[in-house]
Amino acid sequence: MIFEGKALKCGDNVDTDAIIPGRYLVSTRPEELAAHALEGLDPELPAKLRDFEILVAGRNFGCGSSREHAVLALKHAGVKCVVAESFARIFFRNSVNLGLPALECGGISSRTMEGDRLRINLREGLVENLSQGFTLKAKPLPGFLLKILELGGLLAYVEERLGGEG
């Protein structure tokens, strides 16, 4: 799985209230959530995000609540992959479970500028900055998480398992 696109940057400790504020959680509709993605950080970001495909974040991205709405909002706003120095654990699970690849990559946020083109090879765990010409090695995902991502998310995996049980 290879993703290529323009990087939007955000800082350290971006919490789930910043990704999708609590007042929007009554909705489960991805399009509605996407319209407010990252709004808690800056009200201009939901519109701006549409021009970017990759989110580059600092440490502890997605800390806070377990709201899967955060992943839905980003994914449906067109984010194809999140690369961060580190993730909060529930966000990481949610991201993989909903088929949005989340890669931990040390050094990515200090060395990437907003708007840089990145190419990400998930299986190899490589993050290539095409604009600046460097490549970083991300923390590799264990095989079964790659499998969940390749299937498109945890439910497809569950479906496969249930099918297997006949």
């Binding site: 899967e68 479970n97 439910l155 569950v158």
Partner: peptide, 10 residues
């Protein structure tokens, strides 16, 4: 442990 909605479904 806290998990997401899809985790709960699984």
């Amino acid at each position: 442990v806290g998990v997401g909605s899809t985790d709960a479904a699984a």
